[in-house]
Amino acid sequence: MGEIVLDQVTKTFGHVQVIPPLDLQIEDGEFVVFVGPSGCGKSTLLRLIAGLEDVTTGEIRIDGEPATHTAPAKRGLAMVFQSYALYPHMSVKKNIAFPLKMAGLPQSVIEEKVENAAKVLNLTDYLDRRPGQLSGGQRQRVAIGRAIVREPSAFLFDEPLSNLDAALRVNMRLEISELHNSLKTTMIYVTHDQVEAMTMADKIVVLNAGRVEQVGSPLDLYNAPRNLFVAGFIGSPKMNFIEGETAEAHRATTVGIRPEHIAVSTDAGSWAGVVSVAEHLGSDTLLHVQTENLGTLTARVDGEFSVRHGSRVFLTPQEDKMHRFDARGLAIR
C-alpha cells in the first residue's frame, strides 16, 4: 500500500508562499519523479509528504487515512536524504538496524532483516565498517538499506544521486529502478536532472515555482508538453523555440521543434545557417547553427556528420513534430 493524495496543500515560509494550492495523486506502486529547476519547491513538497515540515493549509492522505498531522515516523514512509544522513559513529549494520531497533523489534528479527537488506544491496562485506570508511555509492546503498528494512509503504528520495560521479550515477539509477521493480513499492523521487526523470519515472511531475506544470508519463511530456515551460524543460538538448513570422505561418505565437526533429543537409533545406559549434559525440552530432533570421538553433544528427565551425548548412524541420504555443505559452492542439 502506498497511495498518497495531496489536497489543496500550501506551504508558506514567513511571508513567502513557496507552494501555492497544489493537488496531486500518487497511485500505489508508482515511481513518481518530481522535477523542476532549483528552488522550485521539490524538496519542500517531499518534506511535506514526509512530515518533516508542517503544511500551512490543505490535507495529505496516505492510503485514504488523513495524515496531515501524523508524526513522520507514523506515516510509514522512508526517506533517503541527499547527504545520506548516515549516523557516522555507528557501523553500517547498526545504521541499517536503527529504525528496527527504535521500533522495538526483537534482536533476532533485526539481524535477519539487516542481513537480507545487505544481501539485496551488496553490502554484506561492509557491515562492520563505519560510514566514513565507505565510498559514495556504498554510502548511498546503506542509506537505501536503512530505508528498505522498514518496509515502508512509500520511499522518498531527495536527489539521492547528486553527490555521485556520472558513471556511478548511471549504475545507481539502474539499481534503484531494479529495486522498484522487485519491491513494487511507491517511490517518490526528487531530481533536477531530467535524464533521471525520463529514464526512471512512471509518472513525472514537473514543478515550477511551486506550481505543478504538468503531470504525465515521460513520453506524454515529451510528445505533448502542455506549455512552454514543460516543453523547454523536458528533453535534452532543449527544444528550439521560434517566434515571429515562421510561428505566425503556423498560426501560433511560438513554435517549438526538438533538435532531433530537424534534418540537416549541406545542400538544401528550409533554413540556411552557419555552424557555430559542432559537438561530435560519436553516437550523434549536435550542431549549434546560427541561422539568418531565426537566431541560434540546435540540431541533432545521428552518427557522424562531418561539418566544422563555420560550415554552411541547411535545416529542415519535420512539420508534424512541431509544437505550437499561444500568447500565454499554452500548447495549441
Binding site: L52, F81, S83, A85
Partner: peptide, 15 residues
C-alpha cells in the same frame, strides 16, 4: 550536528 541526521532519526521513529 547535521540537521538531516536528526530528521533521519525522526523518520526512523526515534523518540
Amino acid at each position: 550536528l547535521d540537521r538531516e541526521q536528526l530528521e533521519a532519526s525522526e523518520m526512523d521513529g526515534a523518540s
